[in-house]
Amino acid sequence: MPTTIPIPRPSAAPQPTAAPDSLLEFRNIRVVYDNAIEAVRDVSIAVPEGGIVALLGSNGAGKSTLLKAMSGILYTEEGVIESGSIRFRGEDVHHLAPDELVRRGIVQVPEGRRVFASLTIEENLQMGGYTRSNAAARERRDKVFALFPRLHERRDQIAGYMSGGEQQMLAIGRALMTDPKLLALDEPSLGLAPLIIDRIYEVIVRLRDELKMTVLLVEQNAQRALDIADYGYILETGRVVLDGTARKLAANEDVQEFYLGVSSSGRKSLRDVKHYKRRKRWLS
């Protein structure tokens, strides 16, 4: 498991407050698994409409838990929201079933892609558009093919025989078939080659700029995420420890050192990071 490097919370820093135009808000959320394990503690996050918000943090920081809470699937892992709320377009939605959340416009692409391996690309997309009329589904499919020409070229191919990058494209395309208002992507770059990651991230930017879609991007690859995000939050051990515009976070020395891998003295080794972690200022 990757080493968890805590980022110090700025002194007297208030919890982030939602902007008036926020599409999605997590308000003081606390999530507990199996009545014993606290995964997220008092987290408040605002996702403005039409922007890309990045959730950054090491493995186990609570990023995926927030997405599961948002998507209504915590129950599959014995997780519950013990306090706080999730609001979408000003309404509490944390009590809604997953299918109702999809109909409201909240759609998640989970980590690991999870396509229907025995179905073709075309059939996977049809499954994604089951809540739409036939005409609307065809229109959405054409938009997906325009975003991912490779899927169009191989639309009759069995999904299980596709490369990891192609499966990630298909997973995103299948989510887009629902015509989401908010698209949540959980580790979209995980395990992919750099050229494929470039393509995936180009599409994410197009979703914001051309389709005016709101994107919540969960990543461990902080550099990639901050390159395209408008705003970002850094989570450690279930808490927000730092937030700001993507430019502000990218310029922060601690973020550069522990998430971007560089500092004023150059790139740091894992040994340096572990030594730095033990310094007194990280113990607060």
Rank of each mutant, 00 (worst) to 15 (best):
R154I: 01
K268Q: 11
L226A: 06
Q223R: 15
E236A: 08
V218L: 11
D42V: 06
R138M: 10
E111Y: 10
L147E: 08
S263H: 01
S83G: 14
R138W: 09
I234Q: 03
D243I: 00
I86S: 05
G173N: 10
G50P: 07
R140F: 02
A69I: 11
S58G: 15
A61S: 15
V31P: 02
L125T: 12
P98N: 06
D198A: 10
P14I: 02
A13K: 07
M177N: 08
R150E: 12
F116R: 12
I197T: 13
S83K: 14
L235M: 14
I86P: 10
V43D: 01
V40W: 01
D227Q: 14
V240L: 00
T65L: 03
R30I: 02
M169N: 03
A97K: 14
M213Y: 03
R140S: 15
S58P: 05
L192R: 03
E91L: 12
E91T: 11
W282M: 10
I228G: 04
T17M: 05
G72F: 06
I121M: 09
M70P: 12
G238K: 08
H152Q: 13
S64I: 07
Y233L: 12
S264F: 00
G112M: 03
E82P: 04
K274L: 15
P188A: 03
F258T: 04
G105N: 11
S263A: 01
E236N: 15
E78T: 07
S71W: 05
G191P: 11
G60N: 09
T4G: 11
P10K: 05
Y233F: 14
Q15G: 07
A193R: 07
N124S: 04
L211P: 02
S284R: 14
A171R: 02
A97F: 09
V93E: 12
P10Y: 06
D156G: 07
A250F: 08
L190Q: 14
N59Y: 08
F26M: 06
D186R: 08
I37P: 00
A61T: 11
S265M: 03
S269H: 03
T245Y: 07
T76E: 14
G261M: 01
E91K: 15
V273E: 02
T214V: 04
R140Y: 10
F145Y: 15
A136F: 03
L182F: 07
T120E: 12
E78G: 01
Q256F: 05
L192N: 03
I29L: 13
Y33T: 00
P180I: 01
L182R: 04
F258I: 03
L147W: 13
L170H: 08
G62Y: 09
G60Q: 11
R132P: 10
L207I: 06
S64P: 10
E257Q: 09
L190H: 05
D156F: 06
N35T: 11
N35S: 13
E187G: 02
L151C: 06
A246I: 06
I45P: 07
V262W: 01
V93H: 12
Y233V: 13
L55R: 06
E166R: 02
L170C: 07
T120N: 11
G51I: 00
H95Y: 12
L74H: 10
